[in-house]
Design a protein around this nucleic acid. Structure first.
Lengths: 151, 151
DNA sequence: CTCCTTTTCATGCAGTTGCATTAAAATAAA
DNA sequence: TTTATTTTAATGCAACTGCATGAAAAGGAG
């Protein structure tokens, strides 16, 4: 008797899995290298700053950052510390919650986002986008969405 | 005058990029967690061992591993040390090249590969494959291939 | 209110990674 | 042959990550 709920991944699916790992790692590495070559911090910094910029009042609780970025708690805590040391964000005590803090984007952080974007965008173009048609990108977007929780 | 060779990535392409990062990181993390929960070493170990198993004579030079796995030299060097400490591979002096070594899969390493595969395959199924049809997987494979060098 | 549980954030420690450098052998050049 | 360049691998150091734990406040049960 077969167990349909526990069948194996097919060969083509396994190939797709292997290629997802390989291609994403390769492209990400190249994009990171371009950012670094331009004297910019890693992508993780950009991601956090961007999330703050988009947030209500340009600030968020660390817990909220964890949820949105899918990062571990200690990872967010230390990343925030580094960003704060670089004066890209400011740590404030939360007025509503005595345990918590609020992380706010500074003018310097906002400026860094703007400075990085042209380089980042150009890297996405040269390492990723230039290999794909618009249809390819749309299809990729749709298929990868199936892998995300709640999509 | 426009410069067609340097156009910007389109919005849908940027969305696809963001989703590639997010989805691959998420799924990889879940698969790694399942391996760890089963008491197995990280995926990187599996990848190296598998590469060795597939190689002529079940052995490779570190340089060759770097090329195939797209890993940095020092990274491979240390990974091999850890694998050798666990007796999963054996480091031998290269007979042809006095500088180099040859990394050979041991019986223990081969056994680990076989032990890990069922768990790994099941994780690929539950975290990746189950979200995709066969056609989806084939399309993903094809599109991601465009991102790899020389594909 | 008091006690217990949960949530939020920080941190010590060990393991890992990136960077730069070193050492040694192979290869090429003079 | 002698010297310079390139290739191969290892390693000291600093930065980063994961894990476990701890501290402090919030929330809930009695």
């Amino acid at each position: 008797m077969t167990d349909e709920t526990n069948e194996d991944a097919s060969p083509i699916t396994i190939d797709a899995w292997a290629r997802l790992l390989r291609s994403s790692a390769t492209v990400l590495e190249q994009v990171e290298a371009k950012l670094k070559a331009a004297g910019f911090p890693p992508l993780a910094w950009y991601d956090i700053l961007l999330e703050l910029k988009r947030a209500e009042g340009r600030q968020l609780r660390p817990v909220e950052l964890e949820r949105r970025m899918l990062l571990a708690q200690y990872n967010v805590s230390r990343l925030i510390d580094r960003l704060a040391s670089a004066e890209l964000v400011e740590k404030r005590k939360s007025p509503e919650d005595g345990r918590g803090i609020v992380v706010a984007l500074t003018a310097k952080g906002s400026a860094l986002l703007e400075d990085m974007w042209p380089v980042y965008k150009s890297a996405i173009q040269s390492e990723f986008a230039c290999h794909l048609s618009e249809d390819d990108a749309a299809t990729l977007f749709r298929l990868l969405g199936k892998l995300l929780p709640g999509k």
